[in-house]
Structure formats: C-alpha cells, structure tokens
Amino acid sequence: MMPRPSIPFRSAASGVGGEIARRVGLAREPWPEDSRTPDWKLLIGELSALAEPVKRVVKAPSTRIALPRTRTPRTVILLPGFATHPVRMRYFARVLEGAGHAVKRWGQGFNWGVSSERFEAAELRLLDVCQRTGEPVVLVGWSLGGLFARELAKRNRDSVAKVITMGTPFSGSPRDNNAWRAYQLVAGHSVDSPPIEADVPAKPPVPTIALWSPRDGIVHHRAAAGRPGERDRAIALRCTHIGFSYAPESIAAVARELEAD
C-alpha cells in the first residue's frame, strides 16, 4: 500500500498560517507619530449606535424622518462602509425611497475592503443600473464606500451624476483614522498600497460633496472634510461615524444634495 502523502497538507497548513501571520503583522504596524485620529472619547461615543434600533421603535417621533416628496427623482446607489452589509443602510434607503428616489444596493454583501474583484463588481453594477435607468447615477458612499464611489466616478464619468461621501477618509494620510489596523487585518493589504490604482485625494470629475462630523470617532474630521480642490463642498454634521448610516440629519443632508444641481 502506498503511503499517504502528507506534504501537501502541511504545505496548505503552512500557507494558511503564513497568511494569518502576515495579516497580524499588518495589524501590528506601529502607529505613525504624525497621524491624526479622533479622540478616544469620540470613539467610545460610537457605542451609541447599538441603541439606534431600539430608539427608533420606542421614540419614533424623534428618531424617524419623513422627507417631502421630491420634484426631481434620482437613481441612487448606496455603498456601505468597511465591514458593513447593505442591510445596515436599509433605513436610509427606505426614507429616500419614501421621498420618490430610486435607491439601489451596490450588488454585493459585506464590504470587506478594496480588491480588484470587488471594485470590478461595483463598476459592473454601476454600469448596469445606469443602462437600465437611462441616466447617470448618484453615488452615496459611507466611509470606505465613499472611496469606492470616488474611484468609480473617476473611471466612469458619464455614468455618475454626483458623488456624496459620508465620513470618508479621502484626504491626508490613510492612517488618519482609528480603523486602519483592523482594515489591514481583514483586507490583507496595507492602506498605503491598495490593490487597485488610485489617486485617492484627487477630486472626481463630477460634483463631489463631503459630509463630515466633528463627533466622528472613527475618521478624523479633516480627513473626511478634505481640502479645497479635493471635493467641491464639505458639509459639517453633528452625528457619529456610524450615525452617518441612519441619523436624520445625515439622511436630510443627502436628500438636499439630491435636489441640488
């Protein structure tokens, strides 16, 4: 009887272990001394998002929002933040739909980071929605989703009417946030070396609006607001980073931008 081959199994195990070790190494990179990150008190404040579903049920009048019917219906694609699922923005979508806008998902599940495959799928989704509706689409990206939105607009100018980012770290250092280590662990690549070619701070060739908040506990507010020339306008809100996905003021701000030229 021939002996069982054991080397392939060991090689596979070694490969998995090596990949885990590589990702852990990425997550343990030293924090740059010149990086700007939100205060830890703001980070703790992000925990308030855990109570958001309960507040909406118990205190409906103060937490729900009803927008007036739009005179200019838009087609919108919502792009979720890092490690979040489109379901996290379902309430956001329902409110915009209630105002008369057509809201689409980005066509994928959880956003586990930038990859060439994930970006290509998002691009195909954009082109498909644009072709079926016969009009350019408004891209609304929360956090990492905003980086997808900006890069999609740069490559598909004729398919995008406007880009709206919410707490998106597109300006300054890619480490100007409290999430870059977790991102590198999950995504498997350095924030300095994304797997797609991108000039992150460069403004897309369409109207680009940056929503930011001084209460953001994940992304430094300057990284999300950007500098002149990196976006057309920056609008300050008073919500948490996670709150961008459900806060009434965030939804209302996006709705106003959908009405604007």
Rank of each mutant, 00 (worst) to 15 (best):
L79Q: 09
V54H: 06
G15L: 15
T240V: 12
F9A: 07
V16P: 12
P201T: 03
D34S: 09
A66Q: 14
E52T: 01
T133H: 12
C130I: 11
K59F: 10
F119T: 05
R155V: 10
V137W: 07
Y91P: 08
S250P: 01
A102C: 15
S250A: 00
L47D: 07
L152Y: 00
E46T: 03
F119V: 04
A234M: 06
L139Y: 12
E249K: 00
T240M: 14
P68A: 04
A210C: 13
L78D: 11
R157H: 07
L144W: 01
M89P: 08
A99L: 10
A21F: 10
G229D: 11
L185S: 15
W142Q: 01
S11Q: 05
S11R: 13
A255P: 01
K203P: 13
L258Y: 06
F170C: 07
G172M: 11
V254L: 00
G25A: 13
V103G: 00
G134I: 13
K59W: 15
G45I: 05
W40C: 07
D199Q: 00
P38M: 15
I218E: 09
I242A: 14
P30L: 11
H85D: 14
P201E: 04
W112S: 14
I218C: 14
P248A: 03
D128F: 10
R69G: 09
A247F: 02
G146Q: 06
P32I: 12
L96I: 00
I164T: 04
T75C: 11
V57I: 12
V76P: 09
L26E: 09
W40I: 14
R155G: 06
L144T: 08
G243C: 01
L124Q: 14
F9G: 04
L79F: 03
S62W: 05
V206C: 05
I44V: 15
D128N: 08
G229T: 13
R105H: 05
T84M: 15
L147G: 02
L144K: 02
A236L: 00
F148S: 08
R150A: 08
W40L: 15
L211N: 01
G45E: 00
I77Y: 01
A234D: 07
K41V: 11
M2I: 11
E46Y: 06
G98W: 11
K104T: 07
S190F: 05
A187H: 07
